[in-house]
Amino acid sequence: MAIGVKVMKRPTQQTSYLRATLKGMALTFSHLLRPKVTMQYPEEKSSKDWTLSSRWRGTHRMLTDEQGRAKCVACGLCPQICPANCIKLVPGEDEEGNRYPLIYEIDEFRCIFCGYCQEVCPEEAIHVGVHYENSEYSRDRFVYDLERLSAQTHPVSTLWDPSDPKGE
């Protein structure tokens, strides 16, 4: 016994695809006239509508004093606070007998960019940077030593300020 299929009788404007196609095309072409949001990276890295947040936590930077020496005094707080255990520090003395890091290395692969090192630093020496272009040709280049950290020039993070939680 054949199954009886019920056929709906619909008006012509609903069975024709022309109307829906034109409607879709109109929406598509209307985008040509809207303002552009695409940024031409890498030629263009920020625009007036969008910049990297000043609280961005990227690869580190060591600040230096007037003589160009790292401000770090090797107090040992950043390796202590670091949850990823990515900072290697060996304290020593400089020529004037001041406490100074003999070895200061950050493994950026291990780093989770929490920013605790910047927060804990009593000398305001180590900072996380507002920076994200880190590609290298070899893995070992991702262990930044003191010289490399001091040579970075990108801006440093302001971190989150509890007295100004929304960054206003």
């Binding site: 090797a74 040992g76 202590q80 304290p91 003395e93 406490r99």
Partner: peptide
């Protein structure tokens, strides 16, 4: 002097 930190 400068050899280690107490907490380490």
């Amino acid at each position: 002097l400068h050899k280690a930190r107490a907490w380490e």
